[in-house]
Deep mutational scan, measured.
Amino acid sequence: QVNIAPGSLDKALNQYAAHSGFTLSVDASLTRGKQSNGLHGDYDVESGLQQLLDGSGLQVKPLGNNSWTLEP
């Protein structure tokens, strides 16, 4: 069960990665100043990332080996 409060997208993504045990490689300029609506409930990694990114204009991309990145 994930419980991440709304706020900074950077912070939300870092909390989610730490909670879910995956690696997220992101260029900080992509997420700077963006906000997230947070995340509450049970999600697989990709669904949770998509939910956190909702409205940010960013997309999640798998890199393999439980690693992910973001792209515009």
Rank of each mutant, 00 (worst) to 15 (best):
S25T: 13
P72T: 09
S8P: 15
S25H: 14
A12M: 04
E46R: 12
D54C: 15
G33I: 01
L49N: 00
Q1L: 13
F22R: 00
N37D: 07
G57V: 03
D10L: 14
L39E: 01
D10H: 12
F22T: 02
H19A: 14
F22W: 02
Q1F: 15
S20I: 14
T23K: 09
G57W: 04
K34F: 08
G55Q: 05
L70W: 01
F22I: 15
N66C: 09
A18I: 12
G7M: 13
G7Q: 11
V2Y: 11
G21I: 04
P6G: 08
S56A: 07
S25V: 15
S67C: 11
I4W: 02
S47P: 04
L70R: 04
G7K: 04
P6L: 04
S8L: 09
D10M: 13
G48A: 08
G33Y: 08
N66H: 07
Q35K: 12
L70I: 15
S36D: 01
L24Y: 09
S20D: 04
S36L: 04
L13A: 02
L58Y: 03
Q59W: 10
Q59K: 14
D10Y: 14
G33C: 14
L49K: 00
N66F: 07
Y16F: 15
F22K: 02
L39M: 06
H40G: 03
S56R: 01
D27I: 08
D54I: 15
Y16G: 00
L70S: 00
P62W: 15
Q51K: 14
Q35D: 08
D54Y: 14
A5Y: 08
L24A: 03
N14T: 13
D10T: 10
S67L: 12
Q35F: 15
H19Y: 13
E46A: 12
D10E: 13
L13T: 01
L30G: 04
I4C: 07
G55P: 01
N14Y: 13
L52Q: 00
D44H: 06
S20L: 15
K61E: 01
G48R: 03
L58N: 00
S20M: 15
T69E: 08
G64K: 04
A18E: 10
L39S: 02
G41S: 02
S47W: 07
N37Y: 10
G38D: 01
H40Q: 13
G64F: 04
N65G: 11
L9A: 01
W68N: 00
L24I: 13
D44L: 06
A5V: 07
G64C: 07
Q59C: 14
S36I: 03
Q35R: 13
Q51H: 11
A18V: 11
L49Y: 01
L9Q: 02
T23M: 09
D54M: 15
S29R: 12
N3I: 12
N66Q: 06
E71F: 10
L70E: 00
S29Y: 11
E71K: 05
N14C: 15
L63R: 06
L9C: 04
Q35V: 13
L30H: 05
L53D: 00
F22G: 02
Y43F: 11
F22H: 01
G48H: 03
H19D: 09
A5I: 06
Q35L: 14
Q51V: 13
Q50N: 12
T69S: 11
D54K: 15
K11D: 15
G55M: 06
R32A: 14
S20V: 15
P72G: 07
V60N: 00
I4A: 02
R32H: 12
E46H: 11
S47Q: 11
G21K: 07
D44G: 07
S47E: 11
R32Q: 12
K11Y: 14
L58M: 04
S20Y: 15
A18W: 09
G21W: 06
W68H: 01
N37G: 11
Q35W: 15
T23P: 02
A5F: 09
L13C: 06
Y16E: 00
